[in-house]
Amino acid sequence: MTSIKSRKRNITDLFGVVPFLLFCLAFEIIPIILLIRGSLIDKATKAFTLKHYLSLGTPLYINSFWNSIKLSGLTALIGCILGTLIAYAIYRWPSIKVQHALVTLSDVTTNFAGAPLAFAFIVILGMNGVITQILLRYFHIQLYPKLSIYSFSGLVLAYVYFQVPLMILLVIPAFEGLKKEWFESAQSLGASNFQYWWRIGLPLLMPSIIAGLTLLFANAFGAFATAYTLVESQLSLVTLQIGFMIAGEVRHDPGIGMAMSVVSLILMGLSIGLYQLSTRRAKWLVRSSS
């Protein structure tokens, strides 16, 4: 019998993955290709057109993109900074058991998004929310209408909730990849704590932090359920607009929805691509150390 490793590339072997490929083609790749094509075609004349993309220039759509980018960028940045700091605190925690418990907490809470999360925030920070009322009655602090859970600031609070633990999960392995010998070498060469982090630690973490930032951005940009439950139509976001178009709640040329989708895909593609690049760079750094 020929060994599997030495076996020649056999065309028939490729048939083993046909069912899977067909499924991906049918439910993912072809629909997306047709969507891209649809965004470039005039439904009436069947001719090539850029008019859908040009329509995105109207204030409503510009506003949606701006809001989405602002929300994703801001929560990604907050999540990235807080997540990295908390990950550092976890990494330096003396008890392994506590470290483990905190990582598990992050694991559970980052998956806790969508409608239940949105509702939980209504419970605490809604108009009659527990914290809103306590602040009002006991501390005479009036949250509404300055800070409203049903607005941009509320969405930031809710998104940060799942962004921070996601960042922790992404960056903890990078902290654990820092070898103690690097720190000790730096020390014996006369470096202070700060000098070590500035010259060695942070540069080594940077690719993972940037990877985290890009993934957080994509994560927030594509989110729908949380925003749908909280703000519905009070704040215009890209995903909400596309959603309303599908549900038929807004009468529009579907071509515009497709054009919005394609622009979102490009943005997501860019951030996922950046994520892949940074992850590769992070792996490269870690590999080089062994």
């Binding site: 070898k179 010998e181 690097w182 000790e184 070498s185 730096a186 010259r199 060695i200 540069p203 080594l204 750094l285 870690v286 080089s288 150390s289 062994s290």
Partner: peptide, 8 residues
């Protein structure tokens, strides 16, 4: 384990 700084 050598412990050279991989970023330098």
């Amino acid at each position: 384990a050598y412990a050279l700084f991989p970023n330098l």
